[in-house]
Design a protein around this nucleic acid. Structure first.
Lengths: 126, 126
DNA sequence: GTAACTGCAAAATATTTGCATCCTT
DNA sequence: AAGGATGCAAATATTTTGCAGTTAC
């Protein structure tokens, strides 16, 4: 088992993600932590945070990769089958923890994980 | 209104997509049409096919962009709120036209489009 | 002290743009 | 003939990798 270390970069990046109401892209982090750490370090820290289960990764409708804190995840059990809402105007991606889509896969398909993204206008932009 | 032309590249690319059971990536098309047309042409043709509503674009769980024919779309009305299934073993993405997830957005959110991707194992790989 | 982490350079990928030329209508 | 489509070169963007030096524990 790999040792997990607490570093400045990791702390700052995690704080930034946790303090953001919407999911953030690599470029958002880079802009916010200008001078604090390298582009590459951000990629590597994000990878670790994902592996440690502190954040989750969202690929939004446009193919932009974003990250959000795992507020709703209890410990090891990641419950990511909620919907991510992507606003077409302000471009913000938010996790709609409150609703959960209902569906059944056809026979013989085995479900592992779910990535639901819907887009439209958020309450502020509508 | 822009004029729409029928060209060799366009015909071949559309055929290839329509004959594929799973959604295809740019690289799949390129591999299949080696020598027939340029990388850049493929990008541009895909753009046109999208605009003309003959194919639709899927960003899969890994962020890979894929394209599939619009079998289920009647003319102008694109009904893309079906689920895309991404197999973790064979990496194929298929459209599950038969099922439709049920959900309700929280108040004041306006829904425009939907992108549902689930992953796991397809019947062949399970 | 050791293994994890970081920064910098560079490679690998993916996508876009400009422009001269070719082809469909 | 005219304007859309294509090929090639090159720019841009995004992510990954290698490696030497630094830091957390």
């Amino acid at each position: 088992m790999k040792n997990v270390r607490k570093t400045v970069a990791k702390t700052k990046i995690l704080e930034f993600i946790q303090n953001s109401k919407a999911a953030v892209a690599h470029s958002d982090i880079q802009a916010s932590l200008k001078g604090v750490c390298d582009r590459v370090t951000i990629y590597r820290v994000l990878e670790r945070l994902l592996k440690e289960g502190l954040i989750h990764k969202i690929v939004d409708v446009d193919g932009v990769v974003k990250y959000a804190a795992c507020h709703t995840c209890e410990n090891k059990f990641h419950q990511h089958n909620h919907i991510h809402f992507s606003c077409e105007k302000c471009k913000k991606v938010t996790c709609l923890d409150t609703i959960m889509p209902v569906f059944n896969l056809p026979q013989n398909y085995i479900l592992n994980s779910v990535n639901f993204t819907v887009s439209g206008f958020c309450p502020k932009c509508k």
